[in-house]
Design a binder for these strands. Structure first.
Lengths: 146, 146
DNA sequence: TAGACACCCTGAAGTAGCTATAGGGTCAAG
DNA sequence: CTTGACCCTATAGCTACTTCAGGGTGTCTA
């Protein structure tokens, strides 16, 4: 099959397929008489593997590593587990960051209840206070307010 | 003060300060006899305002908009609220995404309890199954498994 | 007075993972 | 013979920085 059909069947863009090839994730396809890429069912699976891992938020470098385990089923799977653990830790850390961000944003948002001049707006007042290094909602202690 | 001191006092890199200037966030500083940038207390506050907003996860474009409200305190603050609401919605959406990612990753991780060959590893089996379009942990229904 | 060192300058390239654009070739249908 | 869908390569753009190359400035010490 050609690149367009491959893209349709995996739900990813043609450019993305070529990008994965350039990055060494997809095995290089054969070319037909017109120089068009020609893909096999193997390569379709390979691309679906990649897309699936991407949907789990994994970076391309780690997907590349997982692909190597796919090609070498006799390898010890400890490396696979390590990649998963890393990914879980990464996602957990991102969530912690977003959680505290969200709390700060909510607090800040509540400082302004109705339309008024920006100079009187509790949100702007808080942001301007923080800019002066004074205590603010997000960083109540002066020394914590970078 | 020169750029190094400004950077130290705000806890950001010299290159980042120059970058903000190039992007039009920081007002252009005076230059001294040697062509070095010379900053005022006003500009220190401006930079701290920017860094504070960045610590709330806001993109530079929205910080730019907030800075305009800072310079125009008589403007209606509805725009400020809108920026906050957008940011809150963005963070909430990211968290939802990460939450479902985390659940999928945990399920997948539990498929492999002990060291073995990659070919027998429950994680790799699941990923390979997904690659074939078969039901997997993350996308139990075949048609949902892109 | 010479050298060392910290600091400053500009401009360009690199990071992740694509997406988009320019400028062209191939092929089947009407 | 033209239209349209598809394919090709190479390059630039996106965010928010960081890094690097190559060079100038300013002060302190030997």
């Amino acid at each position: 099959m050609r690149i367009g059909e491959l893209a349709r069947r995996t739900g990813c863009e043609v450019e993305t397929v070529r990008y994965y090839e350039k990055e060494g994730l997809l095995t290089i396809p054969q070319r037909d008489g017109s120089g068009y890429r020609s893909y096999t069912g193997q390569q379709l699976e390979e691309l679906q593997f990649i897309r699936h891992c991407r949907s789990l938020g994994m970076p391309l470098a780690e997907i590349k590593a997982l692909l190597r385990f796919r090609y070498h089923p006799q390898w010890d799977c400890a490396g696979v587990n390590a990649i998963l653990d890393t990914q879980i830790a990464r996602v957990q850390e991102q969530m912690r960051g977003l959680q505290s961000l969200l709390e700060q944003l909510h607090l800040l948002r509540m400082e302004c209840a109705h339309r008024q001049q920006a100079g009187e707006c509790g949100i702007m007042k808080n942001l301007n206070q923080a800019a002066k290094g004074e205590p603010c909602l997000c960083h109540p202690l002066p020394e914590g307010c970078a």
